[in-house]
């Protein structure tokens, strides 16, 4: 006969709650002992407590009180879990980069097309705000996991080599953090420039907010042409797109590696494909400032 039966199933929510208290204390003390009490632990703690309150700990033993045995802990605490977060958020951000590029390239279809597209986005807050909040969360998680991994990696080699040369490691793979940080600074500038249309930083002296087209929509075409006619702004844009291309040429193939979707048959295709896609993205984005600044595209909008 099975003798190790769990405690009797509680009958009321109050009893459930009372039974959960020692287990919750167990969770807190386990985390304190591990000296890992952080904001993440609080998240886990909230999850643990809710589960304990729901099940009332009636399984006979407290499975949840042991650290590192649930998916949240593996995801946020293990080195591999942080790489999964990096890969998945990176993938979502990559899809945005593609979508944004296709949207932007409509500038070559003339003022009417891009202004209509801009008006469509602006007039659908139900679409644009979830997308914006999602992007912010993805950037936040991507940044958080990158910082965590970088700090751990620095700590893993306290004494540097006197004579060290990178073996087989590409330039892109060694500059992921620095390149990423410069791209983040670009994103902040880019948002202030075209999204918030902050007059002080566009270096043209014109206020983009006042640009309207004959349909009384915001004149995005004119904003882009005026904005990129400033060589410093266009230069920073091109530099950032170059760094983004470098970041993606390594990141896109690493994404497959980190999620375990790579084997020797697919490896050359993925590695080469990442470089090709990154180059296409670079050309796609750079074509706009280059066309405006070098080939005087849309110069009639400047008048």
């Amino acid at each position: 006969m099975h003798t190790e039966a769990g405690p009797k199933r509680p009958t009321t929510p109050v009893q459930k709650g009372l039974q959960a208290i020692p287990l919750i204390i167990n969770v807190i003390s386990a985390n304190f002992q591990l000296n890992q009490f952080s904001s993440l632990t609080l998240l886990e703690f909230a999850l643990d407590s809710s589960v304990l309150l729901l099940v009332g700990g009636n399984r006979g033993r407290c499975v949840w009180a042991t650290p590192m045995n649930n998916i949240i802990a593996y995801l946020f605490k293990s080195s591999l879990g942080k790489k999964y977060i990096m890969a998945v958020t990176g993938c979502c951000l990559f899809l945005f980069v593609i979508g944004h590029m296709v949207g932007n390239l409509q500038v070559f279809l003339g003022p009417e097309a891009i202004n209509r597209y801009g008006h469509f986005l602006q007039s659908n807050p139900e679409l644009i705000w979830p997308a914006r909040i999602g992007l912010l969360v993805f950037v936040g998680l991507h940044f958080w996991s990158a910082m965590q991994i970088t700090l751990e990696n620095r700590a893993a080699r306290p004494v540097a080599y006197a004579n060290s040369k990178p073996v087989a490691a590409s330039y892109a793979s060694r500059t992921m953090v620095m390149g990423g940080l410069i791209v983040v600074s670009f994103i902040i500038y880019h948002l202030l420039h075209f999204t918030f249309q902050c007059k002080a930083i566009n270096l043209t002296g014109q206020d983009f907010v006042g640009f309207t087209d004959p349909n009384n929509h915001h004149d995005i075409f004119k904003m882009i042409v005026v904005g990129f006619n400033q060589p410093l702004v266009a230069g920073f844009y091109l530099l950032s797109m170059g760094l983004l291309c470098l970041h993606l040429s390594h990141g896109l193939s690493s994404m497959f590696q980190s999620l375990g979707w790579k084997n020797d048959a697919y490896r050359p295709i993925i590695d080469c494909g990442a470089k090709v896609v990154a180059t296409v993205i670079f050309i796609g984005y750079s074509s706009i400032p280059v066309a405006i600044l070098v080939f005087k595209f849309g110069k009639e909008a400047l008048k």
């Binding site: 605490k77 293990s78 591999l80 942080k82 751990e152 080699r157 990178p166 087989a168 490691a169």
Partner: peptide
Amino acid sequence: VTQMDKEGFGSCTVTGSCEA
């Protein structure tokens, strides 16, 4: 993997130096 993290090794950034 848990033991590897506990020992204080860094994480993989797919540079490929190890393989080389």
